[in-house]
Simulated assay, not measured.
Amino acid sequence: MTGMYYDARWCAPHGIGRFATEVRNRLSGWDDLPLDGSPTSPSDSWRLAKCLKQNKASIYFSPGYNVPLYASCPVVATVHDLIHLHCADETSIAKRAYYRYVQRPMIRRSPVTLTVSEFSRQEIIDWYDIAESQVVVVGNGVSEEFKPDEIALPSKRPYFYFVGNTKPHKNVESLVKAFAIVAEKYGDVELKLVAKPSDAIRRLVALTPVKDRIEWIRGASDVKLAEQYRGAVATVLPSFFEGFGLPLVEAMACGCPVIASDRTSIPEVVGDAGILFDPNNIDHIADCMIRVLDDSELRAAMKQKGLQQAAKFRWSQVGERVRRALQSVAAS
Protein backbone atom coordinates (compact mmCIF):
# COMPACT_ATOMS: atom_id res chain seq x y z
CA MET A 1 0.00 0.00 0.00
CA THR A 2 1.28 3.47 -0.87
CA GLY A 3 0.62 6.67 1.05
CA MET A 4 1.33 5.29 4.53
CA TYR A 5 2.78 8.17 6.55
CA TYR A 6 4.63 8.04 9.88
CA ASP A 7 4.94 11.27 11.85
CA ALA A 8 8.68 11.13 12.55
CA ARG A 9 8.66 14.70 13.86
CA TRP A 10 8.20 13.15 17.30
CA CYS A 11 11.54 11.31 17.15
CA ALA A 12 13.86 12.55 19.93
CA PRO A 13 16.08 11.10 22.70
CA HIS A 14 13.62 10.98 25.60
CA GLY A 15 9.94 10.59 26.51
CA ILE A 16 7.53 10.24 23.61
CA GLY A 17 10.53 10.87 21.37
CA ARG A 18 12.18 7.64 22.47
CA PHE A 19 9.01 5.67 21.75
CA ALA A 20 8.74 7.35 18.36
CA THR A 21 12.37 6.61 17.45
CA GLU A 22 12.34 2.98 18.55
CA VAL A 23 9.04 2.24 16.79
CA ARG A 24 10.16 4.00 13.59
CA ASN A 25 13.25 1.81 13.46
CA ARG A 26 11.02 -1.27 13.44
CA LEU A 27 8.42 -0.27 10.87
CA SER A 28 9.05 -0.94 7.19
CA GLY A 29 6.99 0.25 4.24
CA TRP A 30 6.15 3.61 5.84
CA ASP A 31 7.22 7.04 4.58
CA ASP A 32 8.13 9.84 6.95
CA LEU A 33 5.48 12.54 6.88
CA PRO A 34 6.66 15.34 4.52
CA LEU A 35 5.86 18.11 6.98
CA ASP A 36 8.12 20.28 9.13
CA GLY A 37 7.33 22.19 12.30
CA SER A 38 6.44 20.92 15.75
CA PRO A 39 3.58 18.40 16.04
CA THR A 40 2.53 20.27 19.20
CA SER A 41 2.13 23.63 17.45
CA PRO A 42 -1.35 25.20 17.75
CA SER A 43 -1.60 25.33 13.94
CA ASP A 44 -0.39 21.78 13.37
CA SER A 45 -3.78 20.08 13.12
CA TRP A 46 -4.68 22.31 10.16
CA ARG A 47 -1.27 21.97 8.49
CA LEU A 48 -1.31 18.21 9.05
CA ALA A 49 -4.74 17.86 7.47
CA LYS A 50 -3.61 19.78 4.37
CA CYS A 51 -0.43 17.69 4.11
CA LEU A 52 -2.31 14.39 4.24
CA LYS A 53 -4.76 15.60 1.58
CA GLN A 54 -2.04 16.93 -0.74
CA ASN A 55 -0.04 13.71 -0.48
CA LYS A 56 -3.10 11.46 -0.92
CA ALA A 57 -2.41 9.60 2.32
CA SER A 58 -3.94 6.15 2.66
CA ILE A 59 -3.21 5.95 6.42
CA TYR A 60 -1.56 8.25 8.97
CA PHE A 61 0.19 7.09 12.15
CA SER A 62 1.42 9.36 14.93
CA PRO A 63 3.56 7.98 17.78
CA GLY A 64 2.29 10.99 19.73
CA TYR A 65 -1.11 12.44 20.53
CA ASN A 66 -1.48 14.85 17.58
CA VAL A 67 -4.21 14.39 14.98
CA PRO A 68 -5.31 16.29 11.86
CA LEU A 69 -8.28 18.62 11.95
CA TYR A 70 -9.90 16.42 9.29
CA ALA A 71 -8.85 13.41 7.24
CA SER A 72 -10.24 11.16 4.54
CA CYS A 73 -7.81 8.37 5.50
CA PRO A 74 -7.65 6.32 8.72
CA VAL A 75 -5.83 8.10 11.54
CA VAL A 76 -3.99 6.17 14.29
CA ALA A 77 -2.57 8.19 17.19
CA THR A 78 -0.75 7.17 20.36
CA VAL A 79 -2.20 8.61 23.56
CA HIS A 80 0.46 8.01 26.20
CA ASP A 81 -1.46 9.61 29.05
CA LEU A 82 -4.24 12.03 29.97
CA ILE A 83 -2.25 14.20 32.36
CA HIS A 84 -4.02 17.33 31.11
CA LEU A 85 -7.26 16.03 32.64
CA HIS A 86 -5.73 15.64 36.09
CA CYS A 87 -3.10 18.38 36.45
CA ALA A 88 -4.60 21.86 36.31
CA ASP A 89 -1.15 23.47 36.50
CA GLU A 90 -0.09 21.77 33.28
CA THR A 91 -3.00 22.64 31.02
CA SER A 92 -4.52 25.71 29.42
CA ILE A 93 -7.74 26.82 27.75
CA ALA A 94 -6.17 26.23 24.34
CA LYS A 95 -4.96 22.74 25.27
CA ARG A 96 -8.32 21.73 26.73
CA ALA A 97 -10.07 23.02 23.60
CA TYR A 98 -7.70 21.04 21.35
CA TYR A 99 -8.34 17.80 23.20
CA ARG A 100 -12.09 18.28 23.41
CA TYR A 101 -12.90 19.71 19.98
CA VAL A 102 -10.10 18.42 17.71
CA GLN A 103 -8.46 15.33 19.15
CA ARG A 104 -11.41 13.71 20.91
CA PRO A 105 -13.71 13.63 17.84
CA MET A 106 -10.89 12.23 15.68
CA ILE A 107 -9.98 9.55 18.24
CA ARG A 108 -13.63 8.52 18.46
CA ARG A 109 -13.72 8.06 14.67
CA SER A 110 -10.38 6.23 14.54
CA PRO A 111 -10.47 2.44 14.08
CA VAL A 112 -7.77 2.05 16.73
CA THR A 113 -5.75 4.18 19.15
CA LEU A 114 -2.51 3.00 20.73
CA THR A 115 -1.33 3.52 24.30
CA VAL A 116 1.44 2.29 26.60
CA SER A 117 -0.20 0.90 29.75
CA GLU A 118 -3.39 -0.75 30.93
CA PHE A 119 -3.95 2.22 33.23
CA SER A 120 -3.87 4.65 30.29
CA ARG A 121 -6.03 2.31 28.21
CA GLN A 122 -8.87 2.43 30.73
CA GLU A 123 -8.60 6.20 31.05
CA ILE A 124 -8.81 6.55 27.26
CA ILE A 125 -11.85 4.25 27.02
CA ASP A 126 -13.63 6.23 29.72
CA TRP A 127 -12.82 9.80 28.61
CA TYR A 128 -13.18 9.35 24.86
CA ASP A 129 -16.20 7.08 25.43
CA ILE A 130 -15.04 4.47 22.93
CA ALA A 131 -15.18 0.69 22.73
CA GLU A 132 -12.53 -1.42 24.44
CA SER A 133 -11.62 -2.89 21.05
CA GLN A 134 -10.57 0.57 19.81
CA VAL A 135 -7.65 0.90 22.26
CA VAL A 136 -4.56 -1.30 22.02
CA VAL A 137 -1.76 -1.40 24.62
CA VAL A 138 1.62 -1.65 22.89
CA GLY A 139 3.77 -0.80 25.93
CA ASN A 140 7.29 0.59 26.08
CA GLY A 141 10.72 -1.00 25.90
CA VAL A 142 14.29 -0.71 27.12
CA SER A 143 17.04 0.48 24.78
CA GLU A 144 20.14 -1.69 24.48
CA GLU A 145 22.34 0.74 26.41
CA PHE A 146 20.47 -0.07 29.62
CA LYS A 147 22.02 -3.27 30.99
CA PRO A 148 23.56 -4.26 34.33
CA ASP A 149 27.03 -5.56 33.54
CA GLU A 150 28.81 -2.40 32.41
CA ILE A 151 30.60 0.55 34.01
CA ALA A 152 28.88 2.24 36.94
CA LEU A 153 29.36 5.92 37.74
CA PRO A 154 32.21 6.29 40.25
CA SER A 155 31.01 8.31 43.23
CA LYS A 156 32.58 9.23 46.56
CA ARG A 157 29.15 9.23 48.19
CA PRO A 158 26.11 6.96 47.81
CA TYR A 159 23.39 8.71 45.83
CA PHE A 160 19.73 8.53 44.94
CA TYR A 161 18.75 9.21 41.35
CA PHE A 162 15.86 10.89 39.55
CA VAL A 163 15.28 11.13 35.80
CA GLY A 164 12.50 13.25 34.33
CA ASN A 165 11.38 16.87 34.53
CA THR A 166 10.17 19.19 37.25
CA LYS A 167 6.57 19.72 36.13
CA PRO A 168 4.14 19.65 39.07
CA HIS A 169 2.94 16.08 38.43
CA LYS A 170 6.49 14.76 38.87
CA ASN A 171 6.35 15.83 42.54
CA VAL A 172 10.06 16.69 42.71
CA GLU A 173 9.31 19.06 45.59
CA SER A 174 8.42 16.10 47.81
CA LEU A 175 11.53 14.23 46.69
CA VAL A 176 13.77 17.16 47.67
CA LYS A 177 12.07 17.43 51.06
CA ALA A 178 12.31 13.68 51.66
CA PHE A 179 15.97 13.71 50.69
CA ALA A 180 16.61 16.48 53.22
CA ILE A 181 15.27 14.15 55.94
CA VAL A 182 17.51 11.32 54.73
CA ALA A 183 20.55 13.60 54.48
CA GLU A 184 20.09 14.81 58.06
CA LYS A 185 20.57 11.20 59.19
CA TYR A 186 23.26 10.27 56.68
CA GLY A 187 25.90 12.93 56.18
CA ASP A 188 27.46 11.37 53.10
CA VAL A 189 24.44 10.75 50.85
CA GLU A 190 23.61 12.71 47.66
CA LEU A 191 20.68 13.29 45.33
CA LYS A 192 21.32 13.51 41.58
CA LEU A 193 18.52 14.75 39.33
CA VAL A 194 18.61 14.50 35.55
CA ALA A 195 16.27 17.38 34.84
CA LYS A 196 16.08 21.11 34.24
CA PRO A 197 14.92 22.66 37.52
CA SER A 198 11.91 24.96 37.47
CA ASP A 199 12.24 28.31 39.24
CA ALA A 200 10.11 27.01 42.10
CA ILE A 201 12.27 23.92 42.60
CA ARG A 202 15.42 26.01 42.30
CA ARG A 203 14.19 28.25 45.11
CA LEU A 204 13.26 25.24 47.25
CA VAL A 205 16.70 23.68 46.85
CA ALA A 206 18.38 27.00 47.67
CA LEU A 207 16.57 27.01 51.03
CA THR A 208 17.38 23.36 51.79
CA PRO A 209 20.15 22.87 54.42
CA VAL A 210 21.64 20.04 52.31
CA LYS A 211 21.62 21.95 49.01
CA ASP A 212 25.34 21.21 48.51
CA ARG A 213 24.46 17.51 48.20
CA ILE A 214 21.87 18.01 45.44
CA GLU A 215 23.22 17.91 41.88
CA TRP A 216 21.44 18.76 38.63
CA ILE A 217 22.55 16.91 35.52
CA ARG A 218 21.68 18.07 32.00
CA GLY A 219 22.06 16.50 28.59
CA ALA A 220 23.09 12.99 29.67
CA SER A 221 23.39 10.47 26.85
CA ASP A 222 21.89 6.99 27.20
CA VAL A 223 25.35 5.63 27.96
CA LYS A 224 25.81 8.16 30.77
CA LEU A 225 22.29 7.60 32.08
CA ALA A 226 22.98 3.87 32.26
CA GLU A 227 26.25 4.46 34.15
CA GLN A 228 24.41 6.69 36.63
CA TYR A 229 21.56 4.20 37.10
CA ARG A 230 24.11 1.44 37.81
CA GLY A 231 25.92 3.54 40.40
CA ALA A 232 22.84 4.67 42.32
CA VAL A 233 21.54 3.32 45.62
CA ALA A 234 18.08 3.56 44.03
CA THR A 235 16.11 5.48 41.44
CA VAL A 236 13.19 7.39 42.96
CA LEU A 237 10.05 8.41 41.02
CA PRO A 238 7.59 10.28 43.27
CA SER A 239 5.08 11.22 40.54
CA PHE A 240 1.42 11.90 41.20
CA PHE A 241 0.69 10.80 37.64
CA GLU A 242 2.39 8.74 34.95
CA GLY A 243 1.12 7.16 31.75
CA PHE A 244 3.98 4.66 32.02
CA GLY A 245 7.20 5.67 33.82
CA LEU A 246 10.02 4.66 31.47
CA PRO A 247 12.91 5.65 33.82
CA LEU A 248 11.75 2.91 36.20
CA VAL A 249 12.21 0.22 33.53
CA GLU A 250 15.55 1.69 32.45
CA ALA A 251 16.73 1.66 36.07
CA MET A 252 15.63 -1.93 36.67
CA ALA A 253 17.32 -3.03 33.44
CA CYS A 254 20.57 -1.57 34.80
CA GLY A 255 20.23 -3.45 38.09
CA CYS A 256 19.22 -0.33 40.04
CA PRO A 257 16.57 -0.71 42.77
CA VAL A 258 13.47 1.45 42.28
CA ILE A 259 11.40 3.33 44.84
CA ALA A 260 8.27 4.91 43.43
CA SER A 261 4.81 6.34 43.93
CA ASP A 262 1.90 3.94 44.27
CA ARG A 263 -0.26 5.92 41.81
CA THR A 264 -1.59 5.50 38.26
CA SER A 265 0.50 3.26 35.95
CA ILE A 266 3.50 2.90 38.26
CA PRO A 267 2.48 -0.26 40.19
CA GLU A 268 1.73 -1.92 36.84
CA VAL A 269 5.22 -1.11 35.53
CA VAL A 270 7.16 -1.92 38.71
CA GLY A 271 5.29 -5.11 39.63
CA ASP A 272 6.75 -6.64 42.81
CA ALA A 273 10.28 -5.49 42.02
CA GLY A 274 10.23 -2.13 43.78
CA ILE A 275 9.07 -0.36 46.91
CA LEU A 276 6.02 1.88 46.55
CA PHE A 277 5.05 4.87 48.69
CA ASP A 278 2.30 7.44 49.11
CA PRO A 279 3.54 10.46 47.10
CA ASN A 280 1.72 12.85 49.44
CA ASN A 281 3.59 11.51 52.49
CA ILE A 282 7.12 12.96 52.62
CA ASP A 283 8.03 10.97 55.74
CA HIS A 284 6.98 7.75 53.97
CA ILE A 285 9.15 8.60 50.97
CA ALA A 286 12.11 9.28 53.28
CA ASP A 287 11.51 6.05 55.22
CA CYS A 288 11.56 4.03 51.99
CA MET A 289 14.80 5.70 50.89
CA ILE A 290 16.41 5.01 54.28
CA ARG A 291 15.23 1.40 54.22
CA VAL A 292 16.94 0.74 50.89
CA LEU A 293 20.06 2.71 51.87
CA ASP A 294 20.43 0.72 55.12
CA ASP A 295 19.92 -2.79 53.76
CA SER A 296 22.39 -4.21 51.22
CA GLU A 297 20.57 -7.58 51.13
CA LEU A 298 17.32 -5.81 50.26
CA ARG A 299 19.08 -3.91 47.46
CA ALA A 300 20.48 -7.16 46.07
CA ALA A 301 17.03 -8.79 46.11
CA MET A 302 15.48 -5.72 44.45
CA LYS A 303 18.14 -5.79 41.78
CA GLN A 304 17.33 -9.37 40.81
CA LYS A 305 13.58 -8.81 40.82
CA GLY A 306 14.08 -5.62 38.84
CA LEU A 307 16.08 -7.38 36.13
CA GLN A 308 13.30 -9.97 35.81
CA GLN A 309 10.64 -7.26 35.59
CA ALA A 310 12.59 -5.18 33.06
CA ALA A 311 12.95 -8.24 30.81
CA LYS A 312 9.21 -7.97 30.13
CA PHE A 313 9.71 -4.69 28.25
CA ARG A 314 11.36 -5.06 24.83
CA TRP A 315 11.23 -2.63 21.92
CA SER A 316 11.11 -5.57 19.53
CA GLN A 317 7.83 -6.65 21.13
CA VAL A 318 6.50 -3.09 21.09
CA GLY A 319 7.36 -2.78 17.41
CA GLU A 320 5.55 -6.02 16.62
CA ARG A 321 2.41 -4.95 18.53
CA VAL A 322 2.39 -1.62 16.68
CA ARG A 323 2.91 -3.35 13.34
CA ARG A 324 0.01 -5.75 13.95
CA ALA A 325 -2.32 -2.93 15.00
CA LEU A 326 -1.47 -0.84 11.95
CA GLN A 327 -1.73 -3.84 9.67
CA SER A 328 -5.26 -4.51 10.90
CA VAL A 329 -6.23 -0.91 10.09
CA ALA A 330 -4.61 -0.99 6.64
CA ALA A 331 -6.36 -4.25 5.81
CA SER A 332 -9.82 -3.05 6.84
Rank of each mutant, 00 (worst) to 15 (best):
M1W: 07
Y5V: 01
Y5H: 06
D7L: 02
R9V: 05
A12I: 00
V23R: 03
V23N: 09
V23L: 08
R24Q: 10
N25G: 15
N25I: 00
R26Q: 13
L27N: 08
S28F: 09
G37P: 08
G37C: 11
S38G: 09
S38A: 10
S41V: 03
P42R: 04
L48M: 11
C51I: 06
Q54P: 04
N55T: 12
K56A: 15
K56C: 12
A57S: 12
I59W: 00
S62N: 04
P63G: 06
G64L: 05
N66Q: 11
V67I: 07
C73D: 10
P74T: 07
V75F: 09
V76I: 14
A77D: 12
T78N: 12
I83T: 14
H86W: 11
C87K: 06
A88G: 01
E90V: 05
A94M: 07
Q103C: 12
R104W: 03
I107N: 09
R109G: 03
V112A: 13
L114S: 09
T115A: 02
E118S: 13
Y128F: 15
D129A: 14
S133M: 02
S133I: 04
S133D: 14
V135I: 01
N140Y: 09
G141L: 00
V142Q: 00
S143A: 14
I151N: 09
S155D: 06
R157L: 07
K167L: 13
K170L: 00
L175H: 04
V176K: 00
A178Y: 03
A180I: 04
I181G: 01
V182I: 09
V182P: 01
Y186S: 09
D188E: 15
V194D: 09
A195G: 06
A195P: 10
P197N: 08
A200N: 13
I201H: 00
I201E: 07
A206S: 15
L207S: 13
K211T: 08
V223K: 13
A226G: 00
G231V: 07
A232M: 10
S239N: 08
F240C: 01
G243P: 00
F244T: 01
L246N: 06
C254M: 03
G255M: 02
P257M: 04
R263P: 01
T264P: 07
A273F: 04
G274F: 06
N280F: 10
I285D: 04
A286L: 01
C288N: 14
C288P: 02
R291D: 12
R291Q: 14
V292M: 08
L293Y: 13
S296V: 13
L298H: 10
R299Q: 15
A301V: 07
A301N: 12
K303V: 11
Q304V: 10
Q308W: 03
A311Y: 05
K312V: 04
R314G: 05
Q317P: 00
V318H: 00
R323Q: 14
L326E: 00
V329Q: 08
A331T: 15
S332K: 14
